[in-house]
Amino acid sequence: MYRIIASKKSGEITLSLPPSKSLTHRLLILGALNRGQTVIENRLRAEDTEITYRGLKALGMHAREEDHRLICEQPLGKVAQADIYLGNSGSSARFLVPLASYGDRPVRLHGTARLHRRPFAELFQALQALGGRFEAPQQTLPATIHPAELQGGRLTFDHLPSSQIITGLMLAGLWMHRDLILELRERVPSLPYVAMTARLMQRLGLSVELSPSRIEVAAARPEMHWQMTVEPDLSAASYWVAVALIGGIRVTLPGVILPSLQGDERIFGLAEAMGGQVMVYTDRVEITGDIRRGITADCGDIPDLVPTLSVMALFAPEPSRLMNVAHLQFKESDRIAAIRQNIHTLGGRTEFDG
């Protein structure tokens, strides 16, 4: 049992954040698709990212550790292990399903019972339209993916449960037969994560065009030398923003450089909207102040900030409204139920109209 002692006193905290999970996933996959050398510094070593890393190695990527860097030297393709366990990592699953088509023999992907209940139908429908071959009787995991040349071309989506489907297709689009065009007729949840993928690919010299309703990825198997350092994780930064405003403490986050590739940089603007002060320097961000008002915020694009914002809202003098959060019910857990249960345990009140 953990005992938390309430205290509100002035002070200062300076701490280094862990590397971004989202950027680590994407850089690992891009390294596995690059026929040149990819050097990744400051990658996150966490359960989900290590599942992605092991999955890519199973699909044939060769990589080695050297001086706290990961050096990817051979792309995927020659399957080393045909049975890949994905745990409860929905991001790993949605990213690896299309990539498994590029192996030289069938690959079985599976995970926990919770992962098998998560929505994958739209991804398998897209894979089939691209020329993929697979066995997924329930249009979810477990599934067996067979070798296939994905054709590229135009796909249209009316509704998607997760932006990770788009990101997975964008990354896989590099190895498709022709350019991949994705048309989005309705809003995609967590769209800034798609923008993160596009900006990262552009930064690496890849041809990607992005608009709110259309994405185009040029088919061109890269053979480049890439060296990237993973940014600090701004989802993790949100917890320390909450510490600063709830506890009345000055929090300094070295290494946080704004603007960022990550959509969760919105936490700093939301902190200011609640009454905090955010000072942005060239090499750090500092947060001070307290919570003076509630907020109304559209959280459709920032699902990972919802737990933090919910806790911060408990300390506001009037209610806060967090909108477009229904898709959080279908993450690694039902996040809405978990947030509400814990807030009620603490004596707070919530309403959910999802």
Rank of each mutant, 00 (worst) to 15 (best):
I5D: 15
A6G: 10
E12A: 10
L15D: 06
P19F: 11
S20A: 14
S20D: 06
K21W: 14
L28D: 02
A32L: 02
G36R: 04
Q37D: 10
Q37C: 06
T38Y: 00
R43I: 05
R45Q: 11
R45N: 12
D48V: 05
Y53I: 04
R54D: 14
G55M: 10
K57D: 11
L59I: 10
M61S: 13
M61A: 15
R64P: 09
R64Q: 14
R64Y: 15
R69L: 14
I71E: 04
C72T: 02
Q74M: 11
G77P: 09
A80Q: 15
Y85T: 11
S91P: 10
A93D: 09
F95V: 12
L96F: 03
L99P: 01
Y102M: 06
Y102D: 01
P106I: 03
V107S: 12
V107P: 01
R108C: 09
R108Y: 01
R108D: 01
A113E: 14
A113M: 08
E122K: 07
L130F: 10
F134G: 07
A143R: 00
A143H: 00
E149S: 09
Q151P: 05
G152P: 06
L155I: 08
D158P: 00
L160H: 05
L160I: 07
I165L: 13
I165P: 03
L169F: 13
A172C: 13
G173T: 02
G173K: 02
L174A: 06
W175R: 12
D179H: 09
L180Q: 12
R187T: 09
R187F: 01
V188S: 05
V188I: 13
L191R: 06
R199N: 15
M201I: 06
M201G: 11
L204P: 00
E209D: 11
E209V: 02
S213R: 15
S213P: 01
I215Y: 04
A218R: 15
P222W: 05
E223S: 10
M224C: 08
A237L: 05
W240P: 01
G247Q: 02
I249R: 12
R250G: 05
L253N: 03
G255A: 08
V256Q: 02
P259N: 07
P259Y: 07
Q262A: 04
G269W: 02
G269A: 13
Q277T: 11
I287H: 04
D290W: 11
R292D: 01
G294V: 13
I295L: 10
A297W: 00
G300F: 08
I302G: 06
V306F: 10
T308S: 05
T308I: 12
L309A: 07
S310R: 03
M312G: 09
A313F: 03
P319K: 09
V325H: 00
A326C: 03
L328K: 01
Q329S: 09
Q329H: 05
R335F: 00
N342W: 13
I343F: 00
G347K: 10
E351Q: 13
D353A: 11
